[in-house]
């Protein structure tokens, strides 16, 4: 049995027939072939799969594709506009906030949501808010720096 799911991903309307148990992250990776969103665990701890659903960060391994029916989904692939990187992407590169790059898409998506809710976060706030995103490479030092710098850039 399959169901038809329609949503807008990075500004494009997409419709696919999928198994009802299909997770949003599987829908993105397997049905749409958008592999920028990663899977690093199976208990919703690591945050590698974070995307935005209707503007809010969501662990895409935690909801069914069917639950995103009609939603506007943004993934890391949709951040850069007209060839220009999002300020948070720039901040991650400038501050060496990534090493292997695997956690990076989820980390950037969480960071953007964090700053949208809290435009001028303290270091303590950034560390607390990133609790749901695991990185094994950087020790978070440069990620925290990047999020602070990204926040400043987003404030303009």
């Amino acid at each position: 049995m399959t169901i038809s799911v329609t949503m807008t991903v990075n500004g494009q309307s997409v419709t696919r027939d999928v198994e009802p148990r299909t997770l949003l992250v599987q829908f993105l990776r397997e049905n749409l072939g958008m592999t920028g969103t990663h899977v690093g665990c199976d208990t919703s701890q690591c945050g590698a799969c974070v995307v935005h659903v209707n503007g809010t960060s969501v662990k895409s391994c935690t909801i069914l594709a069917a639950q995103a029916q009609g939603a506007k989904v943004t993934t890391v692939e949709g951040l850069a506009q007209d060839g220009k990187l999002h300020p948070m992407q720039e901040a991650f590169r400038e501050n060496h906030a990534l090493q292997c790059g695997f956690c990076t898409p989820g980390m950037i998506m969480s960071a953007i949501d964090l700053v949208q809710r809290n435009p001028n976060p303290s270091e303590e706030t950034v560390r607390h808010e990133l609790e749901g995103n695991l990185c094994r490479c950087t020790g978070y030092h440069n990620i925290v720096k990047a999020v602070m710098a990204g926040a400043q850039a987003m404030r303009g």
Binding site: V76, L85, L98, G101
Partner: peptide, 10 residues
């Protein structure tokens, strides 16, 4: 290497 990683193109 960072460009491909921060844009989800790894």
């Amino acid at each position: 290497e960072d460009f491909r990683f921060i844009t989800g193109q790894g």
